[in-house]
Design a protein around this nucleic acid. Structure first.
Lengths: 183, 183
DNA sequence: CTAAAGTTTCAGTAATTATTGAAACTTTAG
DNA sequence: CTAAAGTTTCAATAATTACTGAAACTTTAG
């Protein structure tokens, strides 16, 4: 597995970005390689293409599987395992959002819920709790909203995206419609 | 500056989460402290409350300022600088999203644009480019969509959020409305 | 059952990132 | 202008995180 310069550029960049996206450099490289490679490839091919150790590849594949970003394959008459990305680019984005929400918001949300059950001991804690309530409501709002979005069909999502700032107009229309139906 | 146990719990948790949110532990702690503290506090008070070095606080404040999350204040007759969070919790969320978009998507988007200008050298690169196009379109979609959302008034955003799965229905209404106005 | 082909684990080490604290710098009251 | 009060910088070091590769494990063909 030799990468062409174009492919190498992309793979290495994805590696650099990896850490910002929630996984480490080699996991980012591995995923990039799998995204642009048409046919499933083996762990050894990955190790060779990226010049990293076989052990590291094994751990990376485990990580990518835990994100549900890749799939394992078996070729008939071959004992090796072959890997491939799982689903469309949209599915990938959904999984990444979902996973990050789990890691970045859920633990905080749960802690905030606990703290908000306590009775504030003094004026200082009273003020603190009010702020925490705001943070809590924000996180809860984002969480609910994002799970609603994931429930929408891809077509509706696409419409919504294309609507852009037009969303404002649609909201106005909604108010008018409701009013009309109440009359 | 002594923190009560409740406040300490929150501050330390925010520190742990900090790295997942794009800044480091102490920056997370510092921000949490500023969020729940009513009156502006000095760099020294922060260092004392969190038991971290004065130098570290200085760097952290710089980082928080670069995210536009805090504001500096001067008290009359006092040479010290006092700090306070900047804007509402909503403003905070907006700034964090914006900043993360800059760090996590913009560089990739720009690289992808470049690569897509190249002519594929063979079938392998041809397939790679198709995939890259998909990734590019996804990132561009998210970028545009999120900047549209930021342009909406807070009230409309709130309506949109509360709408939840109702978004689907509103989209249906939109189609009907358009049809009606065309008749 | 055995050996071969493959995968995973994990202790040790390398690489990266965060933190300290002393020195350099800046600002202002007098 | 000077000294005092404050802030920032950055080289050294600590803490964390990622990577390697050999050993342990698993699976299957024969």
């Amino acid at each position: 597995m030799k990468m062409t310069p174009m492919i190498e550029t992309f793979v290495m960049h994805f590696g650099e970005m990896g850490s910002r996206w929630g996984f480490n450099r080699t996991v980012g490289q591995m995923y990039a390689l799998l995204v642009i490679t048409k046919d499933p490839i083996s762990a050894n091919q990955i190790a060779e293409a990226l010049s990293i150790s076989r052990g590291n590849v094994s751990m990376g594949l485990k990580e990518l599987q835990s994100w549900q970003l890749i799939q394992m394959h078996h070729k008939p008459g071959d004992r090796k395992e072959y890997f491939q990305t799982n689903g469309s680019i949209w599915d990938m984005a959904n999984r990444v959002f979902e996973e990050r929400r789990k890691r970045e918001m859920d633990p905080t949300l749960s802690l905030l819920r606990d703290i908000l059950l306590d009775t504030p001991a003094n004026a200082e804690e009273q003020h603190a709790q009010e702020k925490l309530k705001e943070v809590h409501d924000l996180l809860e709002g984002i969480t609910k909203w994002s799970s609603e979005l994931q429930r929408l069909s891809p077509e509706k999502l696409d419409t919504l995206m294309k609507l852009g700032s037009g969303v404002g107009k649609v909201l106005d229309m909604k108010d008018k419609l409701l009013k009309r139906s109440n009359e």
